[in-house]
Nucleic acid binder design. Sequence first.
RNA 1: GGUACUCUGGCAGAACGGUUAUGCGUGAGCCUGCAAAGCUUAUACAAGGGGGUUCGACUCCCUCGGGUACCUCCA
Length: 469
Amino acid sequence: MKLHDTLSNLEQKVDVSKKVKIYLCGVTVYDESHIGHARTIIVFDVLRKYLESKDIEIEFVQNFTDVDDKIINRAKVENTSAENISVKYIDNYFKDFDGLNVKRATNYPKATEHIEDIIKFIEELIKKESAYTSKNGVYFSVSRFLEYGKLSKKKIDELQSGSRIEIDEEKKDPLDFAVWKFSDTEPTWNSPWGKGRPGWHIECSAMSIKYLGENFDIHGGGRDLIFPHHENEIAQSESCTGIQFAKIWMHVGMVTINGEKMSKSIGNVKSIKHVLENWGSNVIRLFCLSGHYSKPIDYSEELLEENLTKWRQVETCYYELIHADSENSEEIKSIIEKLSTEFNNALEDDLNTHLALSAFFQLVKETNRLAADERLGKENAHIIKIELKRMLKILGLRIPDITEDEKQKIDELIRNREQFRKEKQFEDADKIRDKLNEMNIELIDHREKTIWMRKEKIKAENQKLGHAN
RNA sequence: GGUACUCUGGCAGAACGGUUAUGCGUGAGCCUGCAAAGCUUAUACAAGGGGGUUCGACUCCCUCGGGUACCUCCA
């Protein structure tokens, strides 16, 4: 598998001959997660699920930044402790991302639980004269790391001239950044240099190296983290270990609204809770995977509706497969193999989820075509179902199981309806159909038989219908 | 101002130096008691502008222009 590496600006092969170690910069837990976070995390979820589908072992570490000025400020506003805030939003995080069907990471290290590791890391930096103590804290000395700027392709002198950073007289160089900030307001920890708390960048260096080693496979996050966060991580880590930090840097594009980045200050943030309630995880995942991960994607109701239409096709396909009982009439294996290969090749080539989805939808279409023609045989359906399920799993899409009880009830209602239809008592037949619709069961009348499917309830769709009426 | 990315049909969006996918939408039709869903089929002068390289460029190069992001916290 190849991935585009921000550092080298080239596609790099992922070494899958042994366990693949991935570190993803998670969220700062001071507020609800939004669709932008969702995109990044869903992209990595697919990366991981794809590799795992090939029986490659993955170690996936994603941090929680649970000590930060924003958390502290929020705590002040809500008149509570920083800890309460972070606990609340970590809880919230899992609600959101379990809802989005994101597989849990191997480990979710928190900054506050790794203060000792961070202190050790800083000690090492000081020993190597890459960091120094000043009045306000311990700073990383950018000038000591000659390759500073290599990730973001920035030149140090240009950074300085264009710098909007307030000049701190205590810093040797305006570009130097804090690895430890002195402070007396809680939360604080004791350190050899004084009471305070860690800077933001240092936690990721310390924790990624602790769990994944000094040189691991993939480090990722949103594009907006390239500078300064990831640039600083490289500087700290490579200064400390003397060897290459992450092998591949993978960055996910922003989610925009009307072409603008989502941000609190513009007030255009869409929370995961909100979109999950209105559209459900399948539609959101399709939306997030609809373009190449490295490019921006624009959030709009129209696009979500488009993805809802597609999702309905997938549901139809799935239920057609379940109900298939015609004679096999054509050779299906070769086309499945072809689409399966296309799907894999797309993902192998820099995780091209858009092309992978093309292959996936071709499989869906092909199935629905056979079913419409009453040519979907049981054996063929079985073969298709295996492949469809594989793709669904990698994409993280899910169709809820239906219980035997429910099935029997539905089948009985359908039999009753068939009887009414035979007797041309259409009003009674339609009543049954309405009743099933209320249960979110939709009927598909083929020439020879009627099958049913359970439609996912999508609030946004119902609202739209409500408006139309 | 600097840096990076980006500019494809009504919309979304890929690949490729030589037939421009795929999906949505739209039109027509099929199926149906009706509907829904689905299917079939049709549909798009498509590549920001201008140069250049080439037998041939959407694809490579130059140039001008637009957009977005980052340069401060941000997924």
